[in-house]
Design a protein around this nucleic acid. Structure first.
Length: 424
DNA sequence: TCTGGGGTCCTAGGACCC
DNA sequence: TCTGGGGTCCTAGGACCC
């Protein structure tokens, strides 16, 4: 203890910044990125934040503001964000061998070795400069002796613009000073529910939480929060995890562009989710033994009755064959479908995985299995090159249930046809 | 009219066993 | 009348994260 040092790097307003990068004309303009289906706000540029647009609010609520201030809207373009994320992470990996990609726009870096040889604040600033130069995005850097404190430092880097986006929180007195003015819900691992329960005990700041004896936390809450408290007090409990763990579940779900009542449409949606899930599963090089599907009506509409059911199906043998997944999903759907409901969303979940290399082929089914795998591989390869031109008949095309993306930006970085044209 | 999607981990409780 | 005490495994649900 005492020698660990971590940095948390995250991209400012990541999705909005990605969109701005390819639209220099929007440099100082408010930009908002909408969730799938253009449902609600999931990213805002600094200018949009300044206009009071909150994270997560439904799009229709901000429509007046959008018109009044000429806010530019974007439907989420995950292909673009994933590619930009990749560039950021690669640049970070040039700096350090110990990088943990924590989310699409965040990474932890192990600075334990750096600590002896560099002044940490200027080291953080140099990372910031490098990302700006090589990728074009602004980042915040928080540095601390534990991951939780690095996160807290990153929070401070955002909350206090005077820091220039880099905060070194290795000093205990600085930690205490910051924790005393930080609401407890800003602590990594404390969400809404815990925040409420802690408030009832009059624990309202990060510092108040750090002062509770660990046995007390364990008794009243959980081992998870106990670890958080230890980390706030400088005891490092979480390491850098640079090896990406294999997935334990795969979920593919979408809200519909408009509500759906027929079994036919639900079948198409479910089939296309099952096919996507199968694709992801093959990418993971795993097979699944359990599939479950769910359908649900909107929980926001009090005029229509609420209905929400799921159904699981166990396979005899683990599979990654989309046709088998689709068949099982459709079968499951039939058992939970009820007519006369306005369905808003459907999804498919795969669990209970076996890695491909561990899977024992069925003795009497080897040839078939081999042929099926070959087919799936071919489909995946073609879809990779042509952006989903091959699909299963049961998926349907251009159906009303498919999602709305009215403000989609071009695929600047991933499709040749959409490459940015620089006019001379 | 219009409210995202995809993950992980922990815990409590039931079934079952000796 | 008397009414154990652990274990393990599984699942559903709840909390968190982005």
């Amino acid at each position: 203890m005492g020698n660990t040092c971590f940095a948390l790097v995250d991209c400012n307003n990541f999705y909005a910044s990605c969109e701005k990068l390819f639209r220099p004309d929007l440099k100082y303009k408010p930009v908002v990125v909408l969730s799938n289906n253009d449902g609600c706000v999931i990213a805002r540029s600094a200018e949009a934040k300044a206009l009071g647009i909150k994270m997560g609010v439904p799009f229709f609520e901000i429509k007046p503001l959008v018109l009044a201030h000429q806010i530019t809207l974007f439907s989420s373009n995950y292909a673009l964000y994933a590619d930009m994320s990749h560039r950021v992470m690669q640049t970070l990996e040039e700096i350090s061998a110990e990088v943990e990609v924590y989310s699409i726009d965040e990474a932890f870096i192990d600075l334990s070795g750096v600590k002896q040889n560099f002044e940490l604040l200027s080291y953080g600033q140099s990372i910031q400069k490098k990302i700006k130069q090589e990728v074009g995005l602004s980042i915040g850097v928080g540095i601390g002796p534990t991951k939780t404190l690095a996160k807290l430092a990153n929070y401070a880097a955002k909350a206090y613009p005077k820091t220039g986006g880099v905060v070194d929180l290795t000093d205990r007195q600085r930690q205490i000073k910051l924790m005393k003015i930080t609401p407890v819900e800003e602590v990594w691992g404390v969400g809404r529910q815990l925040g409420k329960r802690l408030a009832e005990l009059n624990i309202k700041t990060a510092f108040a939480l750090a002062c509770i004896p660990t046995f007390e936390i364990r008794k009243r809450f959980s081992v998870v929060l106990e670890r958080t408290v230890r980390e706030l007090n400088g005891e490092s409990c979480l390491r850098i995890e640079s090896i990406i763990p294999t997935k334990k579940q795969i979920v593919c779900s979408r809200s519909f562009g408009s509500s759906v009542t027929s079994l036919d449409s639900l079948e198409q949606a479910i089939a296309s989710h099952a096919a996507r899930a199968g694709h992801k599963l093959r990418q993971e090089k795993q097979k699944a033994k359990y599939l479950s599907i769910f359908i649900t009506t909107s929980r926001f509409n009090p005029k229509h009755p609420y209905y929400n059911r799921s159904q699981g199906i166990q396979f005899l043998h683990p599979t990654d064959d989309s046709r088998q997944l689709i068949q099982a999903a459709k079968h499951g759907l039939k058992s939970i479908f009820r007519a006369n409901y306005f369905y808003a969303k459907a999804g498919v979940m795969l669990t209970d995985f076996t890695p491909n290399h561990q899977y024992q082929y069925d003795l009497f089914n080897t040839i078939d299995t081999w042929r099926n795998e070959k087919l799936m591989k071919t489909i995946d390869e073609i879809n990779l090159k042509t952006r989903h031109t091959l699909f299963f008949a049961s998926e349907g095309i251009n159906e009303p249930w498919q999602m709305k993306r009215r403000f989609l930006s071009p695929q600047y970085t991933t499709q040749w046809n959409d490459l940015l044209v620089v006019k001379g």
